[in-house]
């Protein structure tokens, strides 16, 4: 069986490096292709814990528990998962938990699947309604800086912060298998 090996874009390794050097020890996720490299790297790192979730809101609660116990946590999800988190995000405001989430966008650029679009349109605004500061990385050369700024804002400034990783950055999903 032959496998097409797509080289991992450099920005994905930079995301891992920022999390690692930023002292993140717990990374929870509902997978997305755009997060695949970071998930793999976290799984390989004995000093980090990769936590697969059944629904994204669990990750908001895990983040709170991690901070109660003195660890930094990051939640990886795609834009559709943001809607699943809304009420759980009240935890962040009620207790002022530092919080970092990285959100890969679907439904905004060359999207093939219309079902991804409604939540995509509401992703940024819904998080802002819940009091979360939302950054956005559009180009590969800004990812490292933006994720680093978000991490510092979360854990040094004590804020809940999200970074949207644009669909253009992640690239078109191939829908047809040959």
């Amino acid at each position: 069986m032959s496998e097409v090996v797509t080289p991992t874009p450099a920005w994905q390794e930079q995301v891992f490096k920022v999390l690692k050097e930023g002292g993140i020890q717990q990374v929870s996720y509902v997978p997305d292709a755009g997060h695949a490299h970071v998930i793999r790297r976290v799984n390989e790192d004995p000093a980090m814990r990769a936590i697969v979730l059944t629904t994204e809101e669990e990750g908001v609660a895990v983040a709170g528990g991690a901070w109660l116990g003195g660890q930094r946590h990051a939640l990886l999800m795609q834009s559709s998962g943001v809607g699943n988190c809304i009420n759980m995000m009240s935890l962040l405001q009620s207790c002022r938990f530092p919080f970092l989430t990285l959100v890969t966008m679907r439904g905004e650029y060359a999207e093939f699947n219309p079902w991804q679009v409604p939540m995509s349109k509401a992703t940024q605004a819904s998080m802002e309604l819940m009091g979360i500061k939302v950054y956005r990385a559009e180009r590969a050369d800004e990812v490292e800086d933006v994720v680093g700024a978000a991490l510092d804002f979360a854990f040094e400034g004590g804020e809940p912060v999200a970074v949207l990783l644009s669909q253009r950055l992640i690239g078109r999903k191939k829908w047809l298998r040959h």
Binding site: A61, V62, A63, G64, G65, A66, L68, G69, G70
Partner: peptide, 11 residues
């Protein structure tokens, strides 16, 4: 329970 998980892993 999820909060307990994050706490248990940290401690």
């Amino acid at each position: 329970a999820a909060m307990g998980l994050g706490l248990a892993l940290a401690q």
